[in-house]
Design a protein around this nucleic acid. Structure first.
Lengths: 302, 302
DNA sequence: TCAGCCTGCTGCAATTATTGCATCGCTATA
DNA sequence: TATAGCGATGCAATAATTGCAGCAGGCTGA
C-alpha cells in the first residue's frame, strides 16, 4: 500500500537507528529518506527523531507516533486479509512469538496442517523468551504469542490456558528411567542440564528447589534447547521439558521422559494470547482457533 | 497529514455517493479523484466502489476499508492531540453527539468552562437522536455521546449514567402549577406538546401511558424542542423535559416545571459514552472527565 | 593531535508522478 | 428520443520526488 510508505519509512528509521542504514534496507537513497522524514516532522510540527552524532533516536513524540504507525500497518494487513477473505481467497500472514517448547513439534505440525488447507497463508515463527514475547505483541511484530509461564500480562489478552507439568528427559539407560514418576529430590542426585534463568521451566524448578531449601547446580546451562537436549543425550544427564516440547515415544525411542511429581514442582501454564484490544487478521484468527482446538482435544485446558 | 489524503478522498467519495460531487467538496477535479480511486483499487486488487449509473456505492470490501479509514483518521487526530499535549499545548478537537436536552444549558456551560482553561481546543456539537448518536460514534464522526435513553448499546462504552425523571413544563398560570408533584393522569387532562416518537422523553411517556391504558394525543408534535417550548409557552399547554434541559428558575421566572410522579413515569437515564475499544484524544478524555465530575456533583449518578 | 569515518543535511538537475482539459461511452429519466 | 449526469481515458502541462555531489559536525583510534 503506497500511501503508508512514509509510515514504513519512519518505522524503518526507528528500527535502524540511522537514516542512512534505514535507506539501505529500504533500497532508496538516504537523501530521499531524509527529506521524507523532514517533511513529516514539518507536517507534525514536532521533531520525530533526536539527532545524535551517530544517527537518530526517537523523540517522545516519535515514540507515540511510531506506536501508532505500527498499529496502522498491522491494521492495514488485517483489513487486506479480511478483504481477501470475503473475495474467497484464504491468504494473509501470521506472525507468532513463542517459547522454545513450541518449536520442535507442536508449531511445525500446526503450521503444516493449516497450510495444507490454505497454502496462500504465510507464517513467521519468532522464538521469544516469555518477557520478549509480550514485547513482540506490543510492538506488533507478532500477532499471537504462545508463552510458557509469562512474566507480566498487562497487555496480554488471553485466549487459552494449557497446564503443563515439568518432565525430566533422559536416555533409557538412566538410573531414573525405571520410575513412572519422579520426585524432585531424586532428580537432584544426578547431573542436570538446565535452560538459563529467564525460561519458564527453569523458573519453576528454581522455585521448587528453593522451597525444599536446595539449590540447582546444573552441569550445563544454555539458552538453546537444541543444545541442551543433544548434550543431555550424549552425556546421559537429566534435562527438563514440558509435554508439548517432547517428541513422540515412537519417534525417539532412545529418549525417555517422566513427569515430576506435582507436589514437588507445580505445573506451569502455556498461554495463548494476543495484544489486548487488537483485532486479528482473518488468517491469524483462524490459525488461533485451530491451535486452540488442538489444545483442547489434546491437553488439560480452561 | 498528507499521507492519508488518499484515505480522506475515499471517505469523501463514500459520503458523497459520487466521484464528481466528492471532487467538488474536496476542491479538486473529478479526474484526479477518479484516478486516485482507480489506483487504490488497483493496489488493493479489489474494487472499492460499485459503479452505478448515477454514481458509486461502496462494495463490501469498500465498507470494510472505509471503516478502517475512519478509524485511522480519528486515530491520527488522537496521536496529534497526544503529541501536542506533551509539548505543553492543550489543543485538539472534541466532537460530541448528544440528545436535545444537553443543548440549551448543560453543554454550552460545559464547553465554555472547558474553553476558559484550554482556548485552543475546538468543539463540534451534533444534535442526534438516540439511535443516530450511536451511529455517529461508530462512523467516528463523534468522540463522545450524551444520550437520553439510548436504543441499543452494543458499540457503546458507558462512562457514566445519570438518572433523570421527566418534568412537566408550563407557565405559572397553568392549573397544575400549584402542585409540587404531578400524576400522569392529571397531565393527560390538559393539552400537550410532545416531541416526535424517536425521542427518549416521548418514549418514556408512551410506555407510561400504555400501562394505564391511555393514549397520548398531543396538540403539537415536533422534533424541535425550541419550537415545542415556545409554543407551549404561548398557548399555555404542557410540555415535557428532563432536569438537565430545564432553565434555572431565576433565569426564566415565567416558566414552571414540576416532576411527574415516578410511580407513573419511571426516570430515564442519560448515558455518557464513547465507542467501545476506541482511544480518546487527550482533549476528549479531559472534557469527558470534566463533564463526569459536574454530573457527579450535581445529579444522581452511578 | 589529527586523519578517517560516519552522521544528517542541502543545492541543482533529471526523473517521475500528478493534475486538468476535453472528450468518450454509458444509463436512467423526462 | 433527447438530455443530463455519471465514470473512464488520452494528452499536455505542472508539480513533486529522487539521485548525485558535496557540506559541516562529532566520534574514534592511531
Amino acid at each position: 500500500m503506497k500511501h503508508l510508505l512514509p509510515l514504513q519509512y519512519i518505522d524503518a528509521v526507528a528500527k535502524a537507528g540511522s537514516i542512512r542504514q534505514a535507506a539501505e534496507t529500504l533500497a532508496i537513497t538516504s537523501t530521499a529518506l531524509n527529506r521524507r522524514i523532514l517533511a513529516m516532522e514539518d507536517e507534525l510540527g514536532v521533531p520525530i527523531f533526536e539527532r545524535l552524532p551517530r544517527g537518530v533516536r526517537l523523540s517522545t513524540a516519535g515514540e507515540i507516533l511510531v506506536h501508532h504507525i505500527r498499529s496502522q500497518l498491522s491494521d492495514m494487513e488485517r483489513v487486506k486479509s479480511q478483504i481477501a477473505d470475503l473475495a474467497g481467497e484464504r491468504r494473509g500472514h501470521v506472525s507468532i512469538a513463542c517459547s522454545q517448547a513450541m518449536l520442535p513439534y507442536f508449531l511445525p505440525e500446526q503450521v503444516s496442517s493449516y497450510r495444507r488447507e490454505h497454502s496462500a497463508v504465510t507464517f513467521s515463527i519468532l522464538l521469544r523468551d516469555r518477557a520478549a514475547a509480550e514485547q513482540s505483541l506490543i510492538d506488533m511484530s507478532a500477532d499471537l504469542a504462545l508463552v510458557f509461564e509469562p512474566v507480566r500480562m498487562l497487555e496480554f489478552h488471553n485466549l487459552l490456558t494449557v497446564r503443563q507439568s515439568v518432565h525430566a528427559v533422559m536416555t533409557k539407560d538412566h538410573p531414573l528411567a525405571g520410575e513412572s514418576q519422579l520426585r524432585l529430590r531424586d532428580c537432584l542426585q544426578y547431573p542436570l542440564a538446565l535452560p538459563t534463568a529467564h525460561y519458564g521451566v527453569r523458573h519453576l524448578l528454581e522455585t521448587a528447589v528453593r522451597s525444599i531449601s536446595g539449590t540447582l547446580q546444573p552441569v550445563v546451562e544454555s539458552d538453546s534447547f537444541e543444545f541442551l537436549g543433544q548434550h543431555a543425550l550424549a552425556e546421559n544427564i537429566l534435562a527438563f521439558q514440558i509435554p508439548i516440547g517432547l517428541p513422540d515415544a515412537k519417534l525417539r525411542p532412545e529418549l525417555v521422559n517422566r513427569p515430576i511429581d506435582i507436589r514437588d514442582v507445580p505445573p506451569g501454564s502455556i498461554y495463548v494470547g494476543q495484544l489486548r484490544g487488537r483485532a486479528l487478521s482473518v488468517a491469524a484468527a483462524r490459525f488461533a482457533n485451530q491451535m486452540i482446538e488442538t489444545f483442547v482435544e489434546r491437553y488439560d485446558c480452561n
